[in-house]
């Protein structure tokens, strides 16, 4: 007997490689203009955060400059990161990293912890956030330490 169409579809879905299944994001709660709680439940590591900010794959310094003269090519599309920890609370920094467009829909700052509402995402990046929850927390810890 022929398997039913719905059974066939279920078999096909089960056979799909895990990579095609959307990653689930850690839930978070926005309060005011920030996300008060760590995405991982743990504080981030500021040293790892600096390394992430300087890594080209994180994309931060394509647009931002900051207090790290060792980085040769820094962008000027966005405000300097120097003093970020004096201007913003960790909760505000966290929301700006997670989804800056929720604060300003016109911003060109990518949403680093969002996977929906994008057009034509390349297959290598589809259904994945730009940064993991752990990476966001490390960067929040680093930026919060930048005080003037």
């Amino acid at each position: 007997m022929m398997p039913s169409a719905s059974r066939l579809i279920a078999m096909i879905i089960a056979a799909l490689p895990a990579a095609t299944v959307a990653q689930t994001l850690a839930p978070y709660a926005i309060s005011g203009d920030g996300i008060p709680d760590s995405l991982t439940g743990q504080p981030g590591d500021a040293t790892r955060g600096l390394a992430l900010v300087l890594a080209r794959s994180s994309t931060c310094i394509l647009c931002h400059s900051g207090p790290f003269p060792e980085a040769r090519f820094q962008g000027d599309l966005a405000p300097t990161l120097a003093g970020a920890g004096s201007r913003s609370t960790p909760a505000q920094l966290r929301l700006r990293l997670v989804d800056a467009s929720s604060i300003n829909p016109e911003t060109i700052m990518p949403s680093y912890y969002r996977i929906d509402g994008f057009a034509r995402v390349g297959s290598a990046w589809r259904d994945k956030p730009i940064l993991s929850a752990e990476q966001i927390e490390d960067i929040v810890a680093y930026l919060a330490s930048l005080r003037e």
């Binding site: 080209r56 994309t59 310094i61 394509l62 647009c63 040769r72 090519f73 820094q74 962008g75 000027d76 599309l77 467009s101 060109i108 990518p110 949403s111 994008f118 057009a119 034509r120 995402v121 390349g122 990046w125 589809r126 994945k128 730009i130």
Partner: peptide, 26 residues
């Protein structure tokens, strides 16, 4: 003018709005 990709940026965001600026020094 359509934003696209994981970084969610349109051609116009750079080439109309920020053409006098620098991306990673370029």
């Amino acid at each position: 003018f359509q934003r696209e990709g994981q970084l969610n940026i349109a051609c116009s965001n750079c080439h109309d709005d920020n053409a006098d600026r620098h991306l990673a020094g370029s």
